[in-house]
Amino acid sequence: MSPILEVTGINKTFGAVTAAKDINVSVANDEIIGIIGANGAGKTTFVNMVTGWLEPTTGSIKFDGRDITGMAPRRITRLGISRSFQVAQVFSTATVFDNLMIALGIAETTSILSALRPLRRAGLEQRADLLLKRYRIDDYRDAVASTLPQGVRKLLDIAMAMVSEPRILLLDEPTSGISVEEKFDLMDIVMSALKEEGVTVLFVEHDMEIVERYVDRVLAFYQGEIICDAPPSEALIDPKVIEFVIGDEPQGQMMREKAALHTGSGETSDA
């Protein structure tokens, strides 16, 4: 089967800084991919390039066989790639329900005439209620977005990214700012909802336990390069990944111990 997303040889430089260096990735339909790497390794730059916020200096990005390199975010969204944000991007003065209604209204709009239809119509309201339930935020239906707890705001952000029924969803640190106890609850809701919708997912994550539990495949970034592209069972014990990625993370010590057990050597622990 041909890949749904094909990234070929992309580079991105900001002046003298290289944020992406010869990145090649091919993503198959329905894969769940975890993107890991230390801060500044180029994870968000990658997400920004795939979703059109940044244009790669060189290289090409193909979605479903179509070249989308350098397209505006809104066009890429219309084609079927959506994203969430590290800091949830919601309409802060509107209620949760209205956030979803506005998002659905915009997603349904294809021309000026269709944009002039009333926002509040039965079809959209039903879909908004469905999303509220699917992402378990129906308790907050009438709360103004600026007052939401962090976790609910994140869920709303993801639900809004899904209104356009994308085929690929990129999640930028869905669990950042969420307490350790709540992380798994949040990810359970998100991942089961996304499975229901049948979408290919790439998500940026710092927590290796979450990566291990939810993903089929890991992309590890270091200084703008992909240093490892493998299933989590292999990637999380890869010496390079442990040295350059996991070493910086809170669970680094635990992972290193796991790796040491696996390879039967203690070389990778701190000297």
Binding site: R78, F85, V90, A107, L116, L119, M160
Partner: peptide
């Protein structure tokens, strides 16, 4: 209308509007 609701949307969050298409 949907176009009218873009007033609140643009005022609150332009990035989200772009990423809604």
């Amino acid at each position: 209308s949907v176009l009218g609701s873009l007033s609140t949307a643009v005022r609150d969050n332009e990035i989200r509007v772009e990423y809604l298409g």
